[in-house]
Design a protein around this nucleic acid. Sequence first.
DNA 1: TTTTTTATCTTTACATCGTAAAGATTGGCG
DNA 2: CGCCAATCTTTACGATGTAAAGATAAAAAA
Lengths: 239, 239
Amino acid sequence: MRKSEQAPSKTQPRARKTAARTTSPRAGRGRRPSRAEATPYHHGALRDALLEAAERVLERDGLPGLTLRAVAREAGVSHAAPTHHFGDLTGLVSELAAIGFRQFNAAMAAACGGELSINERAMARAKAYVAYAQAHPGMYGLMFRTERLDYSRPSLHEAAEASFAGLAGAIAAKRQETISEDGLTLDQAAAIARAWSLVHGFTMLLLDGRLKDIVDRLPGGGNAEMLLDAMLKMTVARD
Amino acid sequence: MRKSEQAPSKTQPRARKTAARTTSPRAGRGRRPSRAEATPYHHGALRDALLEAAERVLERDGLPGLTLRAVAREAGVSHAAPTHHFGDLTGLVSELAAIGFRQFNAAMAAACGGELSINERAMARAKAYVAYAQAHPGMYGLMFRTERLDYSRPSLHEAAEASFAGLAGAIAAKRQETISEDGLTLDQAAAIARAWSLVHGFTMLLLDGRLKDIVDRLPGGGNAEMLLDAMLKMTVARD
DNA sequence: TTTTTTATCTTTACATCGTAAAGATTGGCG
DNA sequence: CGCCAATCTTTACGATGTAAAGATAAAAAA
């Protein structure tokens, strides 16, 4: 093992590896280390552990820090272990993005759950959208700014589809219409595209820090929430 | 030189390197190859050539293909040549993004140049925004979805600032207001954020193919331009 | 229970990338 | 002419993704 491949500063050094194995792989065979602290060769639930590790790495180190090897280090396994469960980086990233979409959908569903008027519901949904992205910028970036997503994976496809369906349904409810299966009105389509573009664009610009100039010049030292609220009121309250 | 470092399939193989230099760097010293086809050791305008090569690579291979070494290959120089001119990848990418912002600003300025009404001007500007991104998806992605941009570089800072100023000015003109130096109305800020979010969000979703479902379900097989037009008319024409 | 198979994880290896450092070349200035 | 500084190349190193082969343990089969 190269020195450079060791974990940078793990608090819990791995007590694996049948005691100082040299180039001969059979040294010390059969000596099972006392079962208590030993990390078993077979993890048991490595797939989920890798996904959780990946989310930690992502939110800690950002998108460029989310590498296969970093995730493996975080999970305490060899750098090639993720390959078996996800194939390649695209696979891992896509599965993590699917989890993100499910969290995201749940957050929005929870936000517009109470007894709210139609307009309040739309506002709440939009605010939940931005709030999720602010709370999980890494995840949102993974979901919406990564070229390395494979939407042919069923889990990701379904989760992203559900997200879109939720949006379209919310718009339809607000317009007090029903969405036909086989087509959209130009007006419906434009309304959906407008709502999504507005909220997604605001979120992206906000996460990229590009609204900072605007927020800083707000009267009375406003914040992004104020800006979002004003922007939404401009739009939501009247169609 | 490692074999793996050679250009994959250049149509114009480099006739450099004083004829079959071996490990001894002084072989054939002084023999200057006939001045016609020889690539001079000193390029003369390598900085600009690298930027042009980078734009070609970006639009051909996308953001993940835009590497220092790929740019150097495209320009026909050694892989470390860009370092001297740009420091690192961030430097190259930031300078290229600055060029992108200038192109982008020029495209929008040209689009709203004729004698147009105020609303027509806003529409034209928005459409030029999206059209630039569609014509140069790589460049737009570089400008708006790269973490690796250094806005402390004067060229990039100025170009991006000009872009924002153009947007804010257009909004102010449309609202028939003037923008004060030291602050914005909440309403002004919201109008600027709204316009930018709407167009930027639409562009991002469009480039990511996320509007495909909507466009495909448009009546009469519409396209993205129709959708954009309808969306803008919903918004621009009445405030 | 014992043996075999299979899934899981590790090790090794390699091409690529960014970047640093040292060497080579050339234009310019004294 | 000789030196210097700018420019470009070569070499080198650590990191990454991924393939391939080996090791281990769980599961299945006998």
